[in-house]
Design a protein around this nucleic acid. Structure first.
Length: 548
RNA sequence: GCGCCUGUAGCUCAGACGGAUAGAGCAACUGCCUUCUAAGCAGUGGGUCAGGGGUUCGAAUCCCUUCAGGCGCGCCA
């Protein structure tokens, strides 16, 4: 729909001698009387052409050559051009959707551009929690979306396996293990205290028995941290797959960045560019030359690298791999890091408009409107797997995607588990299940549902049917907007609207009747709805059950 | 103190690059299962878009400012 309109308008503007051709916006007016689609393009041109917008609109309309897909074109308000499509156009569009869904629904805006999306990237020191779950849902959906829109997407998880934290984890397990063996051992001050640590210590014992009994930590540190690291990574991978997040295409280890000398090399590279200096025994990066408000230490005066140093190396590594667009998905509590990483990107000469951090806000877990603390299984936080057990993966993902990622989210267990309209995921899935049920019914009656794309649709004539078709035609625009803005939540809202129109239609009109022509036309419409519902749900990473 | 995010109906939130009379769900109230799934549908009420100023043909949207909430400001990770 948008494609067709833009093409027509471009031709029109060209014949009027307007160049360069401005970006042509198409919107779906919320008011039915304003037509099926609308463009404000004349208003945008008013300034540069020094003419009244309505006058320009008139000229544009007059110069449209091919008017046969329109029932009506009107100029309204301050200068909108409103289009009303003929039924014939709607029918043939629906046929196109049925016969080749992918090419009809997809606007290739990616052109194979290489995109890197890094998300979750939780420290391998424990199970994933509810905050990670939101980032996972957003990252997964965004990757799916971009991939569908023609980008070449790489999904990446960065593992902070080099620092103090992983060592602390090892120490915590070691201490618990010694305690199991009846040896009084001091538990590290900032050690990990979750119950999972106890379990890991028991597992260590049942696997290695008394191997480390009288061995001081420093002598078995390497073995134990490696052991627990592998266990934690397995735990995280399991959590990810339990949440039905698509596999990552790459896992980058911080430790390996050090081992391959990338950290030193990255700092060296910055030094060669003159962005590194020494002060008070430490090594600094001149981030304040760019967008940061102060310079940042990369090597401490005791000779240790800071966490930021490996981040520099990691982002340089991303740049070196030649991505056109680099997206980091972070918890909102890390927003203070954006300027320094942006500074790094700029220091390496990367156009920072191609780097984007998406912040995912905190999740407030509630039950019955009250803050909800779950079992202390993993210390003080709620784990992802517990959430999945409680509310289901589809449910949780959908809820996470019903907000823009940078707004706070109240996640109320009662609301989320309610099997009612309070719960949008069921509402949408239910529409799909109903359609399946209609098809099952049709099949039983011996109606051929395999060749619906050859159906004569002229029986589709009531408002609800035409509205449904128009809504389907708007779907590619939603996808495009969501992809350009990196906002998968727009799809969620669209889905609720589409499902709403369908439910209403379903209730008002019976699909299968004695009128075989009308029945087939309506089945074709249902097929269109089904295609779009399942397409969108798939992008969001949510299943579309056949039956509910 | 500085920076970032948020503030839209009683509640939870949408609002597309500045566009037309500001939207949805829930909650409240009224109806609808002999008919393809009632996890559904139809209807009613509900607003100073936090307040104030500015930019322009036009502002919930952009700029300034005040207020409220959250987060971040380390040679921590």
């Amino acid at each position: 729909m948008k494609k067709d309109l833009v093409k027509i308008l471009q031709g029109s503007l060209k014949s009027l001698g307007i160049s360069p051709c401005p970006q042509i916006e198409i919107e779906i007016p919320r008011e039915e009387s304003f037509g099926d689609a609308s463009t404000p393009v004349a208003m945008g041109l008013a300034k540069s052409l020094k003419k009244a917008p309505r006058k320009i609109a008139e000229e544009i309309v007059a110069s449209i050559k091919d008017k046969n897909i329109f029932e009506k074109i009107e100029i309204a308000g301050p200068g909108f051009i409103n289009f009303r499509f003929t039924r014939g156009y709607l029918y043939s569009s629906l046929i196109n959707l049925l016969s080749s869904p992918k090419s009809f629904l997809r606007e290739d805006i990616g052109n194979g551009k290489k995109v890197l999306v890094e998300f979750i990237s939780a420290n391998p020191t424990g199970p994933l929690h509810i905050g990670h779950a939101r980032g996972a849902a957003v990252g997964n959906a965004l990757c799916n979306l971009l991939e569908e829109m023609g980008f070449n997407v790489m999904r990446e998880y960065y593992i902070n396996d080099a620092g103090r934290q992983i060592r602390l984890l090892g120490m915590s397990v070691y201490a618990k293990y010694q305690q199991l063996l009846g040896k009084e051992t001091e538990f590290p001050e900032d050690g990990y205290k979750g119950q999972y640590i106890d379990e890991e210590a028991s597992a260590l014992f049942s696997q290695k028995k008394e191997k480390y009994k009288d061995i001081p930590f420093k002598d078995c540190e390497k073995e134990i941290t490696e052991w627990i690291y592998n266990r934690m990574m397995e735990l995280i991978r399991n959590d990810i797959s339990y949440f039905a997040i698509r596999d990552f295409s790459s896992w980058i280890s911080e430790k390996q960045l050090y081992e391959k000398g990338e950290v030193t090399a990255a700092i060296e590279a910055l030094k060669n560019k003159g962005f590194i200096y020494e002060k008070e025994g430490a090594i600094w990066f001149r981030s304040s030359d760019f967008v940061d408000d102060k310079d940042r230490v990369v090597v401490k005066s005791d000779g240790e690298f800071t966490y930021f140093a490996s981040d520099i190396a990691y982002h340089k590594d991303k740049l070196d791999r030649g991505f056109d667009i680099i997206i980091d998905i972070w918890g909102a509590d890390h927003h203070g890091y954006i300027p320094r990483i942006e500074s790094v990107m700029k220091a390496f000469g990367y156009d920072s408009s191609r780097f984007r951090v998406i912040l995912v806000q905190m999740v407030n877990l509630l039950k019955h409107g009250e803050p909800f603390q779950m079992s202390k299984r993993a210390g003080n936080f709620v784990t992802l797997s517990e959430v999945v057990n409680l509310v289901g993966a589809d449910n949780a993902k959908f809820i996470f995607l019903t907000r823009k990622s940078d707004s706070h989210l109240d996640f109320d267990i009662d609301v989320v588990t309610a099997t009612s309209a309070e719960n949008p995921v069921y509402y949408v899935q239910y529409a799909n299940a109903r359609i399946n049920s209609i098809f099952a019914n049709a099949k039983e009656k011996g109606i051929d549902i395999n060749t619906l794309e050859n159906t004569d649709l002229s029986a589709l004539s009531n408002t609800e049917e035409l509205d449904l078709i128009k809504k389907l035609l708007a779907y590619p625009m939603v996808l495009e907007g969501a992809a350009r803005a990196y906002e998968p939540h727009r799809i969620t809202f669209y889905l609720q609207e589409l499902a709403g129109i369908f439910h209403s239609y379903y209730h008002k009109h019976k699909v299968i009747t004695d009128d075989i022509e009308a029945t087939k036309a309506r089945l074709a419409l249902c097929e269109g709805v089904k295609i779009v519902l399942s397409d969108a749900l798939t992008i969001l990473g949510v299943t579309a059950p056949e039956k509910m």
